[in-house]
């Protein structure tokens, strides 16, 4: 590999092990010697798992997919912070150079009643899928393909919608929130459509259904600590939560319909 530093560190990994959602879990300690600082955090876990498999032990289950910070699958709670000590990155984009020689690194799964542990560090985030599904579809014209840019959108609105749409649904907001609230996620998903002309037709219905589903899944209530915003790997802003509040208050009380 070009550009490697060749530097290595020794760290101790304290990782949460849990067979399934019904069994009690516990921490397991693994010393990791000679870890290249150029490794990503997940690659370090790959090395650990290789070793565990060679020793005939059960490898640590963790979620991962693209390993380039865009899919939202990786989900480790590292030393008290979702996705570890760096801002604006997912766990796959966290590198061992962010740690010091001799560090003990505590790795836990997302903790939320709505995200039951499947195994070890892997949690079931299908609650997010159900929230998205409850939002329903947007009405679109069928027939011939239309000219591009036939619907004009103010630049500011387009930018804000795009920023909201950057949410990858990883659940770090829920993991970071002391209340286990999913407001940042839901607010991003509501905002990306509420800001655009294409999202207007189902605007009220969408926010009512999504918030209702969010509450049913058992997420907590937002107290505006802004921990979610600080930990979001995609920099989703708290302004979205204010917009969600506004959209929901308005759709609940002021929509001029029966």
């Amino acid at each position: 590999m070009a550009g490697t530093s060749g530097k290595t560190i020794n760290v101790t990994i304290k990782v949460w092990r849990q067979k399934n959602k019904n069994q009690k879990g516990q921490f397991e300690t693994h010393p990791m010697k000679g870890v290249s600082v150029d490794m990503s955090f997940l690659e370090m876990f790959d090395v650990l798992n290789d070793r565990l498999i060679t020793e005939g032990k059960d490898p640590v289950a963790f979620d991962h997919d693209c390993r380039e910070g865009i899919c939202g699958m990786c989900s480790m709670y590292i030393n008290g912070r979702p996705h570890g000590p760096k801002q604006g990155v997912t766990t796959c984009q966290l590198h061992m150079r962010s740690f010091k020689d001799g560090d003990t690194i505590v790795v836990e799964p997302w903790r939320s009643a709505a995200f039951p542990v499947v195994k070890d560090l892997a949690v079931d985030r299908s609650a997010f899928d159900r929230i998205i599904a409850s939002g329903g579809f947007v009405s679109v014209n069928t027939g011939n393909a239309r000219d591009a840019n036939s619907i004009l959108i103010p630049k500011d609105d387009a930018d804000q919608a795009f920023n909201a749409a950057a949410c990858i649904g990883c659940g770090a907001c829920v993991a970071a929130c002391k209340n286990g609230s999913a407001m940042l996620f839901v607010s991003a998903k509501v905002s990306q459509l509420a800001l655009l002309p294409q999202g207007q037709i189902e605007r009220d219905e969408r926010v009512l259904n999504m918030v209702n589903q969010m509450d049913e899944e058992g997420f907590g209530n937002c107290t505006n600590t802004a921990a979610c915003e600080a930990e979001c790997p995609k920099g989703i802003s708290l302004e979205n939560i204010a917009r969600l509040n506004r959209e929901y208050i308005s759709a609940s009380n002021f929509a001029n319909r029966k």
Partner: peptide, 25 residues
Amino acid sequence: LANRKARPQGYAVVNGAANSSWYSR
């Protein structure tokens, strides 16, 4: 009470100071 229920099992390590003010929490 509802918020407590939303996280029945807490974290072993929480670094709240990294992302929010103590008084907001």
